[in-house]
Computed example of a mutant assay.
Amino acid sequence: MTNYPKISFLICSLFLICACSNRMTLNKLKNQVNSKLAEQPGDFAVAFKDLTTGDSLFINEQTFFHAASTMKTPVMIEVYKQAAAGIFSLNDSFTIKNEFKSIVDSSSFRLNADDDSEKELYRHLGEKRTLYELVYDMIISSSNLATNMVIELVNARNVTQTMRQLGADRIQVLRGVEDSKAFDKGFNNITTANDLLVIFEKMAKGEIVDSTACQAMIDILLKQQFNEVIPARLPKDVKVAHKTGNISHVYHDSGIVFLPDGRKYVLVLLSKNLKNEEQAKKAMAEVSELIYKYVTGAEK
């Protein structure tokens, strides 16, 4: 007579052993990541989530960082939200300008093209560009000029409010770029690794505005021109929809990684107080590679 209770016990035992093995593998990954980042002077945060298995890894995920240009993803989200509400169309045209008001006292300030990663737009002041083109430049080439125009249109307060509605409770978007009076008073855009993970996960699942808007945002993020961290050490057939951010002694990368088999995961890597930014970027790229290997099974 078959001993079903004994077989069931053995199956359950094997399942528990496998589960423990997977947990140990994730713990090993965390140790590897910590070890890699410890090689570099500075402070780091990591947030990772496999959207297929739910596996996740968090290091300093609630620590505040200067958002730098990672705040441009929340700004893009607000654009698509307001466009869906009929406030404007992404096809609407706006005159390119280089004069903005400080959030401190409404005094005027201008951006310096030499300090911007995208300089072409400055050659077309007085001409018109569609809102879509401004958002595109804001993301793929991190244009500060386009960013300030877009933030002026959607209002930074609305961006932060939308982040709260999405469950990103600590991201704060106060202002555009190069508002020196605000900077001097400590009025800065801030973020955490966890909050960026929250919004990218929702985007990956089509839960921001609607699935069409999410795909449109992902399509822009996929054309990112700065690829020195998350995508740097990944195979060419792996696609990354992401946004970087950097200021002095700070470098970030954040986005969605799409594997050729259809699986995807979210990865956020933040850093500050860096002594050697190039070496830190290299280390973060190696962390991205470690996580890719974990997801694809190369580390199991």
Rank of each mutant, 00 (worst) to 15 (best):
98 N>E: 12
85 A>G: 12
81 K>F: 07
96 I>F: 12
104 V>Y: 04
94 F>G: 01
92 D>C: 05
82 Q>S: 04
88 F>G: 05
102 S>L: 09
107 S>P: 00
87 I>M: 10
95 T>S: 08
79 V>Q: 04
91 N>D: 15
78 E>W: 03
103 I>G: 10
92 D>E: 11
86 G>L: 07
89 S>C: 06
101 K>F: 05
102 S>Y: 11
78 E>S: 08
96 I>G: 08
95 T>M: 10
106 S>E: 01
100 F>Y: 13
84 A>E: 09
106 S>D: 08
89 S>T: 06
96 I>H: 15
103 I>L: 06
99 E>D: 14
97 K>W: 13
100 F>G: 04
102 S>N: 11
99 E>A: 12
97 K>V: 05
90 L>K: 11
101 K>R: 15
91 N>Q: 15
85 A>S: 14
95 T>Y: 14
81 K>Q: 10
99 E>Y: 08
105 D>Q: 07
91 N>F: 09
82 Q>Y: 04
105 D>K: 01
84 A>C: 03
94 F>K: 08
93 S>K: 11
96 I>W: 15
104 V>P: 06
85 A>K: 14
80 Y>W: 08
102 S>G: 12
92 D>L: 04
80 Y>R: 00
100 F>N: 04
81 K>T: 07
96 I>V: 11
83 A>E: 10
91 N>V: 00
90 L>G: 14
81 K>L: 00
92 D>F: 10
103 I>A: 01
83 A>W: 03
95 T>V: 09
104 V>W: 02
91 N>R: 15
84 A>G: 13
98 N>F: 10
93 S>N: 11
79 V>D: 05
80 Y>S: 01
102 S>P: 12
93 S>F: 10
96 I>A: 06
93 S>E: 13
98 N>H: 13
83 A>T: 05
82 Q>K: 07
90 L>H: 11
78 E>L: 02
100 F>P: 10
85 A>L: 15
96 I>D: 10
102 S>W: 09
92 D>Y: 10
100 F>K: 02
86 G>P: 13
85 A>I: 00
94 F>W: 15
94 F>C: 00
91 N>H: 14
84 A>Y: 12
